[in-house]
């Protein structure tokens, strides 16, 4: 997973301050996996989570991935002296803050969703919690 087109090839590291103010509710499915920490989630971790979930669910239910790796992370090659400019983009990450709902599931019962998302949680570099959809009252 990575963007098809970008404005700039490389980005600065940035800071991950505060909590998620958007994408912090279950919006597409019935159950979700919510992050309790802030971190970079690499494209490979997202893919590993997706595979773990879809293998467990087989062809039952539907999985929604709510995060996308928009941020390029560059790295310098091994045994290279410092300087000579920024390294080349090595991998892509999604920025996740406390509250971000990363994965969602629909079409399965709650115990199955819990077990499937627990498998996803093992692939994530953050502490997570299982959340269910909350209906609006207003």
């Amino acid at each position: 997973m990575m963007p098809k087109r970008v404005l700039y090839r490389k980005s600065q590291r940035g800071k991950m301050k505060g909590n998620a103010t958007r994408g912090n509710t279950v919006a597409f499915g019935d159950y979700g996996l919510q992050s309790l920490q802030s971190s970079w989630i690499t494209a490979r971790q997202i893919e590993a989570g997706r595979i773990a979930c879809s293998h467990y669910l087989r062809r039952e239910g539907r999985v929604f991935i709510r995060i996308f790796p928009h941020k390029p992370v560059s790295a310098k090659p091994l045994e290279t002296r410092m300087g000579k400019g920024k390294g080349e983009p090595e991998f892509w990450v999604a920025i996740v803050k406390p509250g971000t709902v990363m994965f969602e599931i629909t079409g399965v019962d709650e115990p199955t969703a819990k077990r499937a998302l627990a498998r996803v949680a093992h692939k994530m570099p953050v502490r997570t919690r299982f959340v269910t959809r909350r209906h609006a009252v207003a």
Partner: peptide, 21 residues
């Protein structure tokens, strides 16, 4: 019917996206 998404190819990870402009 759920059509399972094909896994992203390994070579796609190393390829770079197009730079706008």
């Amino acid at each position: 019917e759920i059509v399972e998404e094909a896994a992203t190819p390994a070579e796609g990870e190393t390829a770079e996206p197009e730079v706008i402009g």
